[in-house]
Design a binder for these strands. Structure first.
Lengths: 195, 195
DNA sequence: GACCGTAGCACTAACGGTTAGCTTTTAAAA
DNA sequence: TTTTAAAAGCTAACCGTTAGTGCTACGGTC
């Protein structure tokens, strides 16, 4: 029960991947709204219930690897070198993430997302989850020692930076501009010391 | 056609109000998820299609007067006294909004919202709409003259302040804390002058 | 006051995402 | 091998939402 040793896991992962690939392909070919769940399931040769045992909702099919995103952000906090400053670390991670999702190859997917209200909504609440996770990581860092509110706030601001930059005319420049503001906000929360 | 003169409008408004009141009552009595649209319509004595001609979705029944919220925020920008500073004006407006929705009388409604994922999602995307509206108001103010990105960013931050403070242990204090950060971020965007 | 145009509402029937209940397959453990 | 439980399947339904179609009554016009 504690040592899951192989084949079953591989098959499950394969099924999951096949569903995700099929879904994305159909969505890009004919539009997200024009493709039904029953159709995706049929094309991936699985039952509808199987599809929903792998993905919580139709929208989740599109944001298949959103956990990567979440982990990269928290990694930027928890995995940074000793005494490496928080904001610059987050800035370069967000820079990378924005570059990644404004790349030409990702364009059709994001166009699809922007065009579907359901997908936009889903992404928005995903971002809030990510902000909460990031806030927890920031609040847990003993080097930083900020209040819970300050941690949550900065986390939100960082996620906002990602979201705003992605939609800006010049994403890279927008990241820099917004992080200038975040840097200032962060400095304003520096706890007063007695040293 | 241009002079809507009375009875029809009153009847329509009455129907709308009756639906909203009935829905809210049922939702609070038995829980948002436990009450179906068909049931709300029956209790309000209208057809389901009528209900949907007044409200775009089930969630919209709960956020009936969200336009007030939006207008109060933009008013805080466009309607402030000459030379009155932007951030303090927004701060007191957000302070008022937070006080309003953390009042005891509003508690059951917000508890209901917090407990329903659908309602949370809906509120989240509502907030993004509000942020965009606010951003437009800020960008349009000639006294401020900030970039489009800076305007959007500050607008997001302000909406974040509202949302974070509402959930904080001490909402009023949280507003002050977050607005301290926003103030700093805003200062960082001050356009360089040649005076 | 009679006459249209149309806004508001009703009804039925359906569509699409999602879930519950129950059975079958199949990998892993004994 | 036998047992067990996870993974997958099928059916049938629930619920929010919408299309299609008509009826009714109000508002403006002659």
């Amino acid at each position: 029960m504690t040592a899951p040793s192989g084949r079953r896991e591989r098959k499950k992962a394969a099924t999951r991947q096949k569903i995700a690939d099929t879904a994305l392909r159909l969505f890009l070919e004919r539009g997200y709204d024009a493709v039904g769940i029953r159709e995706v399931a049929a094309e991936a040769d699985v039952a509808v219930t199987t599809l929903f045992s792998h993905f919580a909702s139709k929208e989740a099919l599109v944001f298949e690897q959103d956990e990567d995103f979440e982990q990269r952000l928290t990694q930027a906090v928890t995995g940074r070198a000793p005494h490496e400053l928080l904001i610059p670390a987050l800035r370069s991670e967000v820079q990378a993430l924005v570059r990644h999702c404004t790349a030409d190859s990702a364009a059709p997917i994001w166009r699809m997302i922007d065009e579907s209200p359901a997908l936009r909504k889903y992404e928005e609440s995903m971002r809030l989850r990510h902000a909460e996770t990031l806030a927890t990581a920031i609040a847990a860092d003993p080097e930083l020692s900020r209040t819970a509110t300050a941690s949550r706030t900065i986390a939100r601001f960082v996620i906002d930076a990602y979201s705003l930059a992605r939609e800006a005319a010049e994403p890279q420049a927008a990241v820099d501009e917004i992080f200038g503001m975040i840097e200032a906000a962060w400095e304003a929360t520096r706890p007063s010391r007695r040293t």
